[in-house]
Every structure is written in structure tokens, then in C-alpha cells.
Amino acid sequence: MDASAADFGSAIACYGLCKDFGDGAEKRRVLHGVDVAIAPGQMTMLEGPSGCGKTTLISLIGGILAPTEGEVMLWGQRLRALSARDLGRFRLQHIGFVFQQFHLLPALTAAENVTLPLMARGWRKRSALDAAHALLAQLGMEAHANKQPLQLSGGQQQRVAIARALIHRPRLIICDEPTAALDARSGQKIMELLHTFAVDPDRACLVVTHDQRIHRFADRIIAMDDGRISNPSLPAS
């Protein structure tokens, strides 16, 4: 399961992706044969109106949902070829997620939240906490490392979520509306941080957004409409 074993040049490659929800008469196709390739070392933004299939597409790319038809390859690894258990391990090793609502564990401190991917990989608590404190310091959150999420502002919580997504050095960062729950100023700061820390020559960063104010951080913008890629190579403005 070595993702780097077969590098096809793209970090993410999707072929003819279709996704249906429901059964029988209730069946509804949300993605209609999406083909897209995303290069490493860039911040790629996925934009489009609500309900156009952005979240479904990142769920398929992140291996959280399985496509009805088509194929997703991450760093040369066909996700369909992986068992559910191996897919979980693959996500744990290669993908970092930043959610719109942060989804931090309220009972844990910021640093403890950041350790989650490391703990799930079997790290010792002390080592994981050391790594978390170091990363939070890089993100300017050193003073808040021992606070619980409810003691932090939205922007600070999202920084913690970004640290959690980065801590295990994944090769793909998937961000779902990372600025949607934040005010404009916090949103800009979060995007600056993401651009600084998430974009790496050996890493792809895929950001789903509605927020046109953050388009300037994108190296590439992919527009979606009605379950299809409407403009696969729109350059960042």
C-alpha cells in the first residue's frame, strides 16, 4: 500500500467519477462522470454553488465515500483496491482533514486534539504531545496549547484543526470550507497559515470554498456545477 510506488505525476487523479445516493425511484445522481487531476505543491480550490457536488467529490477523494462508478487515485494508489480497514489506514497515513465546524474534541486540550492522528497511529502520548506543542508553536498557538476548544475563538479552533491535519505530515490536505465559520479577518489569517504550512512540493492541498475573498490564495481553481467540473483549469485571479 505504498502510495508513492506508482506516481502518475498527479497527486489526485479522478476518472469518470459518478456517485448516486438513494435506491430505486429515490436514486439521485450527484456526480456525473467527473475527471480531474490535481498536482502536488499547489493549493487547489474547488468552488461552486451549494448542492453542486463539491462535498461529495472531496468525500470520494478522501476515501470517506466510495464512488458508484469511476476511480480515484491518490499518489498512484487506487482507493477502490483498498479494503475498508486499509482505506482507514491510508487516510490516517496520507490525508489530513480540516472541517468547516472544526470537530475538535471538547474534552481535550488543543494540544491533545492535535495528537489524535498520531495516537491513532500508535504513538506514545508524551512524544505525540511534544510534536503537537511544537507544531502549535509554529502556528502561533503556543499560549493556547493547554486550553480546551471552548476557551478558544473560532479562528484559534481552526488553527488547532489545521495543526491536527498537518501533525502526521500527510501528502494530501482536504479542507472543507475552512473559513465559513470565521469572520473575514480570521478567515484571511487561516488561509495565510494554510498556504504557508499546507502547501509543500510533496503535498497537495484541496480546499472547498464558497468564499471568493480567499481565491487569491489558490494556485488553481476548479469550478463545479450540477455534479460536473465546469471549468477544470480556471487560473487563480
Partner: peptide, 13 residues
């Protein structure tokens, strides 16, 4: 939602 987030991150069942 917290368990779902863990599952998304890759924490096994």
C-alpha cells in the same frame, strides 16, 4: 460527530 470525525481521520472501528 466526534466519533465520525475520528473515523474520517482514519481511526479504525
Amino acid at each position: 460527530p466526534q466519533f465520525a470525525a475520528m473515523k474520517a481521520i482514519g481511526v479504525s472501528n
